[in-house]
Amino acid sequence: MSKIKNGGRLTDAQVGFLLIVPGLAFFIAIILYPFLDAIMTSFTDKSLLFPTYKIIGLENYEKVLSNPYFGKTVLTTVIFVLGSTIFPYVLGMIWAIVLNQGFKGAEFLRGVTLVNWIVPGIAIGFLWTWIFNGQYGILNSFLEAIGLIDDGIPWLGQTSTALICVIIARTWQMLPWYMAFLLGGLQSVPLDQIEAARIDGANNWVCFWRIILPSMKQTAILVFMLGLIGNLQHFDLPWTMVQGGPARATTTLSIEVYTTAFKDWNMGKAATVGTIWAIILACFSIIYIRQANEKD
């Protein structure tokens, strides 16, 4: 119990409330207020070019949802999110299984793998931009050296390959993240069940599908959902590499919000896209929270 100057005492509930006030104030000022303000802005024609604005109702939503480019942006976002989640997830799982064998040098390889996880996304973007450069990129030089191509291919300059290049870069960036969390899940699998299955004649594939994966099911799902949420709001890597181009081939919802706000100066429309984006994020977040509660 806590004493106050008038001789009274605060209840445990009151003490608890006082303890959460700083965090609650921070949440309201930094997260809740900007979010509500963005929603309100989506119903206006607010622009960075003019000081005044007026409420226009659902006009921004009608324009955004009827714009054929928005549908393409959503599709590009879906492809980017799925590709940037599934590929590093699968590769991270494979690498986690390898490192979980406990062979000599596994700890060293784990540390080396984690290096590119701590590299800033902008630096990774510049690195892969250099690799995929159509004139002096390493990839073209290698392919020319082994005789697969005669002239350099503008990997980031053509709509058929730009998004694939961004997904490859994101896969390289996130593979250590998946490996680290999935490795933790693998290490929680009871070894006695695996040994018993091997005695019964089960091979590695059967052990993985029948014992390992079910034992770490909740962890695997949570990691996958976190990856989806992270990629759905990812911005720096695709922006650094191609800035949404060429011809909007790599424009995701995050890039759409940025370009609408700070290139078209249309804050109302940008807030509208951001609100739709937040609703999609919320759906995945609800699924993640439910899975986390089931795990607990």
Results as ranks from 00 to 15, higher is better:
T77C: 05
T77P: 02
T77E: 05
T77S: 08
T77H: 06
T77I: 09
T77F: 07
V78K: 05
V78G: 07
V78Y: 03
I79H: 01
I79L: 13
I79P: 07
I79G: 06
F80W: 10
L82A: 06
L82M: 05
L82P: 09
G83L: 03
G83T: 12
G83I: 13
G83H: 05
G83N: 10
S84K: 03
S84M: 04
S84F: 11
S84L: 07
T85Q: 08
T85F: 08
T85V: 12
I86V: 07
I86S: 00
I86N: 07
F87M: 11
F87S: 08
F87G: 06
P88L: 01
P88F: 02
Y89P: 10
Y89S: 01
Y89C: 09
V90M: 00
L91I: 15
L91A: 09
G92K: 03
G92N: 00
G92F: 13
G92E: 05
M93D: 04
M93N: 08
M93W: 00
M93C: 12
I94Q: 05
I94N: 01
I94M: 01
I94A: 04
W95F: 15
W95C: 12
A96C: 09
A96H: 09
A96Y: 10
A96M: 12
A96Q: 08
I97K: 02
I97E: 13
I97C: 04
I97H: 08
V98A: 09
V98K: 07
V98F: 10
V98E: 05
V98I: 15
L99N: 02
L99P: 13
L99A: 12
L99M: 08
N100M: 05
N100R: 02
N100C: 08
N100A: 11
N100S: 10
N100F: 11
Q101W: 10
Q101I: 14
Q101N: 14
G102I: 14
G102Q: 04
G102T: 13
F103R: 08
F103V: 09
F103M: 11
F103Y: 12
F103D: 10
K104C: 07
K104M: 10
K104H: 14
K104Y: 15
K104D: 13
G105S: 12
A106C: 13
A106R: 10
A106Y: 07
E107L: 14
E107N: 11
E107S: 11
E107A: 14
F108V: 15
F108I: 15
L109K: 03
L109Y: 12
L109T: 11
